[in-house]
Design a protein around this nucleic acid. Structure first.
Lengths: 123, 123
DNA sequence: ACTCTAGATAGAGAGCTGTCAAGATAGATA
DNA sequence: TATCTATCTTGACAGCTCTCTATCTAGAGT
């Protein structure tokens, strides 16, 4: 049985979605920070390129080639994603590799779930 | 049996999450538009106030009272949410009532799901 | 028609964001 | 140490966003 179920931290926001009770100011500020990082087409494509890349990680050189943008601009967008906790970068030798932090995306996905969607998960 | 299951359009982006293949430029532009609308703490609180309000809808007067902001500013944020397709407003007499459009949030939730999360839903 | 209230629109100003060019830094190799 | 390459940082600028005040519109009640 190689299949391994993920251990998800569901305590904070997952399964108490946006839809069930009003957010506090702190909660909305934290969430808005992450959603804002996703609110740019270049960053969304970067994220999907990283996530879908072989091995779950991608080197900055691969990413830069996929856009008509300069290196510094890509670097800036990666920094925004990093500071939102969505991706994580690691230098190995000459290259820097980025990978997705799935827990943050799982949390967001849970926040947006309607109660109907959430039911089979919480059961 | 008053409970009515939502009919969800899963064809477009749900169950082919961000994580599985790179987004096209069009997909990322559309998605970024919606995420950008969620990327502001005031709008997130507005959304959760609307969604969690009794009857699933809230009058603008209720919403304005919950913030230290002027009416026009609230109106502006509601317009952003409306133009992203996240909420919908309807005038009934003197008041305007807003309600959430759950399909859009379900789509976003699906996009952010990791393959592990998506499995029980796609099965 | 007049007035009152709820909400939207228009316009302006301060601050933030996306982009680039130029320069800095880290590691590999000689 | 010198040099080369990959990536990041800095500084600058145009355009966008959030907020306000002032004005407008839609509907209710007189």
């Amino acid at each position: 049985m190689p299949k391994q179920l993920p251990v998800i931290e569901t305590s904070s926001l997952c399964c108490s979605p946006l839809m069930r009770q009003p957010l506090t100011e702190d909660q909305s500020a934290d969430l808005a920070h992450v959603f804002k990082a996703l609110g740019d087409p270049v960053r969304l494509r970067l994220l999907s390129l990283i996530a879908s890349h072989a091995g779950g990680e991608a080197c900055v050189c691969d990413l830069t080639d996929a856009f008509d943008l300069t290196g510094p601009t890509i670097s800036h967008h990666l920094k925004v994603l990093r500071e939102a906790g969505i991706v994580d970068g690691e230098r190995r030798g000459t290259w820097v590799y980025y990978r997705v932090q799935p827990a943050v995306l799982q949390k967001l996905s849970g926040v947006l779930m309607t109660p109907d969607q959430a039911e089979p998960v919480t059961a």
